[in-house]
Design a binder for these strands. Sequence first.
DNA 1: TTGCATAACGATAACCATCGTCATTAGCAT
DNA 2: ATGCTAATGACGATGGTTATCGTTATGCAA
Lengths: 140, 140
Amino acid sequence: MTGTGGDVLAKTRRFSRPRELVRATLDDSDVFLTAQGVHDRLRASGERVGLSTVYRNLQLLADDGEVDVLRSEGGEALYRACGDRHHHHLICRRCGLAVEVSGPGVERWAARIAEENGFVDVTHSIELFGLCASCAAASA
Amino acid sequence: MTGTGGDVLAKTRRFSRPRELVRATLDDSDVFLTAQGVHDRLRASGERVGLSTVYRNLQLLADDGEVDVLRSEGGEALYRACGDRHHHHLICRRCGLAVEVSGPGVERWAARIAEENGFVDVTHSIELFGLCASCAAASA
DNA sequence: TTGCATAACGATAACCATCGTCATTAGCAT
DNA sequence: ATGCTAATGACGATGGTTATCGTTATGCAA
């Protein structure tokens, strides 16, 4: 039988300049970006990449685990390049600044809760939204 | 002068049958519902309430702290009646079954992380998504 | 290097959740 | 009852995201 859950489907992935641009845009940013945001940055730097292409590649990169995806409080998808180790974020809801945080204890807590309730294939969304120091100062 | 920030604005809130129906629908459900879901249930029970009205009241109830709102992995808003004490959820991504869970340790962790990074006005979104026992069995 | 199969592109239309508009209806205080 | 206005609900507008599809271009092999 196939392994549990989706994984090594060995999809052929061809090189493409647009994808590299999207990846680079995320790499160059220290904040979470929306698809539109990535598109805007590309346009601002003189690159013309279709919006569809940005969405498509953002999804591909997410599927490949190269970028983190999370939902803003408003429900939009936010993307960011990230290391491969598991972590969560503390995000400024004003400027988007994201700080990677980790909490081994939290991971264990989540796993235990899931198990105690008979849930399987559990993922968790643990994100903290607030105002970073500079934004808090700016709005004082 | 008016108080700082939004809280006791003492907004006049008039009774309305549609709002009671929305509230009742959430009260009768043990799963998180989308606005559409609430609307569908109302229609199924023979009640005719405008979709706009459902959205509007869901928002009002959320503002009043009578219902929990969270985002599904797909970005849709999910609503559920809830107690007033702070808690999180373990949600079945198939059937929507939601188990309220709590983690004092997690709360402290979140608060500490926020403080260490100079963030203020921090809220956290901590939700676990998985497959409940029955749904897992059903898809085996 | 040339060809081919097809991944990827990108402009556009389709989708869908959610919100805004506005004329009509209906709580509720006097 | 009467008036003020919150609330309704049909409908159109918005905005993020996805699907469509003809065109372009990558990667492999002859």
